[in-house]
Computed example of a mutant assay.
Amino acid sequence: MSAALQQPSLPSSGVFFTQQSSTVFSSSLLAVPLSTVPAQTLKVSLSGALIQITLRQRSTGLYADFDAGGTRILSGVLCQDRTWLVRESALGLVGDFLFTDTQGQQDPDASGLGSRFLLLYRASALP
């Protein structure tokens, strides 16, 4: 597992639709760098906050935990293609995350993290 501070980058430009039927412009998203391993922990500085993300591949899917300021915000969130993971600004995160499949519409798994499956961050949570 890696806990090094990761620097997000901008994904290529374009438009895609989330499972919640909202339109998202990729220019408003940052890509969180991931490794192709089944269990990883990384820290990213986003919107002025240090966020720790832990990803674990299980037989039933890929799951995420989110910590901000040393406090667990969410635990055991099932990662699905183009589905916002946080969805609740009241939880203490200043934005939201989603995975997108760059080659189709499959839910993410560890074998394609960082290449086929991108973890994207949006600075402002959806209404």
Rank of each mutant, 00 (worst) to 15 (best):
G70C: 10
S75P: 03
D107C: 09
V94T: 11
V77M: 12
S115K: 13
L46E: 03
V94S: 13
D101Y: 05
Y121S: 05
L118T: 04
T100H: 00
Q106H: 11
Q105W: 01
F66D: 02
S47R: 12
A49S: 14
D65Y: 02
W84T: 00
D107R: 11
T41G: 08
R56F: 11
G95L: 02
S115G: 08
D101C: 04
L119G: 06
F97I: 08
F99E: 02
L62E: 07
I53A: 06
V44R: 00
A64I: 06
G104I: 09
G70D: 08
A123D: 12
R56K: 14
D109C: 10
G70N: 10
S115L: 07
A68N: 05
T36I: 05
L119R: 01
S47I: 02
D65T: 11
Q40Y: 03
L120V: 02
S75H: 13
L98M: 10
T36V: 07
E88F: 10
T60E: 15
V77A: 12
D101R: 05
K43I: 13
R56T: 13
A49R: 12
G114L: 09
G70L: 07
G95Y: 04
T36G: 01
A39S: 12
L50F: 06
Q80C: 11
Q40K: 07
G69I: 07
G61L: 09
L85H: 06
I53H: 02
